[in-house]
Design a protein around this nucleic acid. Structure first.
Lengths: 106, 106
DNA sequence: GATTTGCGAAACCAAAAGGTTGCACATATA
DNA sequence: TATATGTGCAACCTTTTGGTTTCGCAAATC
């Protein structure tokens, strides 16, 4: 079983769950209402997110409120960082090219 | 078949391919040497990346050089953006709290 | 012209994914 | 106490995934 954050965000339902609980803690039942699936299916997704340490839970009576461990999302950002460096560099190079064209026109 | 960029980066081998061809164009054979799989398996991954418009190819004789369509990576960055806003806001709020503590000490 | 090399596509396979239903258990409510 | 509600877990099923082997074709090399 691959259980990393990239696997976690691969599924569209899980991405939607992540977005929802990023704003406020929610119960599995409340989450399930947003999708065309059963509560159990949502529970399975939450289990995967938990295994990736992407969610924290708070029990209130018989209800369990899940919310996003937002710090964990930085891991994706960290991976993207290497590409951001590349596209920013290329943009700057384009900038230099355009600047040179401008100079030649003068 | 789900064929979006999040699905593309879910697999660790595909992520490694993406990193490799981000720096320089490579042939399937050259890529396969980096992994413990066959060239055909790499070809399958490239096919998926192509369907996600993540790679461009350039034929040179009988060899095909694949390279990363780096602009496409921005789509992930765009999705992360909403979370970046949250964690930056929370950091600023912490900043305010710390600032207030400092003031009270004075 | 014959052979080697690089490639994609197809057929096949075991494992994983993502869903369902049914259940057990704890907590709230009548 | 009896019933309703919220939850996780297990069993099950179909589809997808990621790999393999085999093949055909085009380009390079002999």
């Amino acid at each position: 079983m691959r259980r990393d954050i990239f696997h976690a965000i691969a599924d569209p339902t899980r991405r939607a769950i992540i977005v929802l609980i990023a704003l406020q803690a929610m119960t599995p039942n409340a989450l399930a209402e947003h999708f065309n699936t059963s509560r159990q299916a949502v529970s399975k997704h939450i289990k995967i997110l938990t295994e990736c340490e992407l969610v924290k839970q708070e029990q209130q009576g018989r209800e369990i409120y899940y919310s996003l461990e937002i710090q964990k999302m930085k891991e994706i950002d960290k991976w993207i960082e290497q590409f951001r460096k590349i596209w920013e560099t290329r943009f700057n190079q384009l900038d230099i090219v355009l600047s040179n064209i401008k100079k030649q026109k003068k």
